[in-house]
Amino acid sequence: MSARPVRLRRTAGLAEVEIASAASGNCIDVGIAQELCAAAEEIAGDEAVSVVLLSTRGRSFCAGADANSPDWAAALASVPQPVIAAVQGDAIDEGAELALLADLRVCARSARFRFSHIAQGRLPSHGATQRLPRAVGRMRALDILLSGRWVGAAEAARIGLATAIAPAGGALPAARRIAIELAGKGPLATRYAKEAVVAGSDMTLAQGIRLEQDLYVLLQTTADRVEGVDSFLERRRPRFRGR
């Protein structure tokens, strides 16, 4: 087995990225950051990958990051496929920002989030000021960022920070089930759906509707869309091929 701190496995449309640095609480050091960037680039360029599962090993999800690491957040944000994070334990500071980079967050009941940047006299710099309000609303985001308090899994689910809850110890299997579920859908459709939601939220509504419509029409030219409609009318499971 590889001793590398970031592992990338690809099987049947699913790419699994695992940070395996339990001894350091999966803190993102320079080496891990470099490997995250490389993994993100590789996944983004691999058309056979339709869903990404992001997980970490050990009790802590991710305890933070070293300063001056390469920009792992930008690299992960540029992955066009849907990304699902399995959050099994504490996600702290940059670790919480890492979880926020995912499109879906599956949290164990024991998982907690904490953004303590302000208490440390610094600002978040890996997206929390932008992605947290987009996920939970402006006032909740400010409350969480200003106080630096713990946000448990139950609250995370209530406010939309967690998109699914799993029993303690069950985040990874639950996230994998969702990943496999998504891998059974149209891979171009799930990419474009992500793009429409994420890119569209940076636009005015009218511009976002234009983007959605153009992606919708582009999908009409694909074999997958024909297969989707045929399978529905024939009452069978679709077989998508990503073209």
């Binding site: 998504l182 149209g186 459709a189 959605e212 919708y216 869309r225 989707g228």
Partner: peptide, 9 residues
């Protein structure tokens, strides 16, 4: 929609 190879339109 994504289960049918589409997105919402």
């Amino acid at each position: 929609e994504t289960g049918l190879g589409m997105i919402p339109g």
